[in-house]
Simulated assay, not measured.
Amino acid sequence: MTFMDAAAQSRTLSRAWGDLVDGFGKRELWLHLGWQDIKQRYRRSVLGPFWITIATGTTAVAMGALYSKLFKLELSEHLPYVTLGLIIWNLINASILEGAEVFIANEGLIKQLPTPLSVHVYRLVWRQMILFAHNIIIFVIIAIIYPKPWTWTDLAVIPALALIALNCVWVSLCFGILATRYRDISPLLNSLVQLLFFMTPIIWNENTLRSQGAGQWAKIVELNPLLHYLDIVRAPLLGADQQLRHWVVVLVLTVVGWVFAALAMRQYRARVPYWV
């Protein structure tokens, strides 16, 4: 078999799908590695990953209190809104920025340990879900202080989180492969994500726009896909009305994203070990 034949066989959807399935099957490996990442990062620390919880909580309280005063919003409504926005944003932000570095950061393992590439992505997403679980404690405390009436429909947060995790996987796969080939992608993403933070309703909402006489911008904000990802998780937890359009947009983007991820894995999966 020639090199060209071998390369052609490696660029098949079945091989790409097999990598994803085999990688998921090695759950003991990526679950262990993801947990070890957190333990290693906070080794010899008394509070460990709760330092991130403290930092997120402090930022949420400061921003929630400040912007509620600036825009004359009720603190009992705006503080939980900002807190959830920051917690969910941290999860999405990590899947983009750390996802772009996922293969570069694991160069040694990729070259020395013959495992599916997807193992490193699952490890990243699992690690971020653990941190999300730590951060959600902040919202639980705020929800106790400012209780809201909940209904059974608010359990939609469970499939919403599953959708977020599913999207984090394809985002990390796509940006990971792209940034491994083109190293300028990572700093570009850093700048873009920073801009998106201010363009996404995290510390402000539609009421903020209306109070500033900029209600017409609400339609433009709808074009920001991150708005829809935030809302499918935030609305159920706040006990707010859930909009069907947010779910439709997220489901469509999930399908489209996984199509791109499958194509990227089919075409470039075998080249990543040579690029890192």
Rank of each mutant, 00 (worst) to 15 (best):
I144M: 11
K39G: 03
T208Y: 05
W126E: 07
S10R: 14
I142D: 00
V102D: 02
C174F: 13
L195M: 15
P187W: 11
D5P: 00
V121A: 05
R11H: 03
A55Y: 12
G57M: 03
D241R: 14
I145N: 00
R41C: 06
Y268W: 15
I202V: 11
Q112R: 14
L244R: 11
V248Y: 05
L251H: 02
W126F: 13
E77N: 10
I145M: 01
V121M: 01
K39L: 13
A143F: 03
Y122M: 07
L253K: 04
Y122N: 09
A261T: 08
L75R: 00
G64A: 01
N106H: 15
W89D: 02
A7E: 13
V21W: 14
L263I: 15
A94F: 09
L97P: 06
V46P: 05
P49F: 07
V233F: 10
Q9I: 07
A235N: 12
M63P: 01
A62S: 10
G239E: 04
L226M: 13
T12N: 03
I38T: 08
I110Q: 04
R269A: 13
W89S: 05
N190Y: 14
L163R: 03
S118A: 12
G215Q: 15
A65R: 04
F50P: 02
I130V: 13
T56C: 10
I104H: 15
Q243Y: 10
N93C: 09
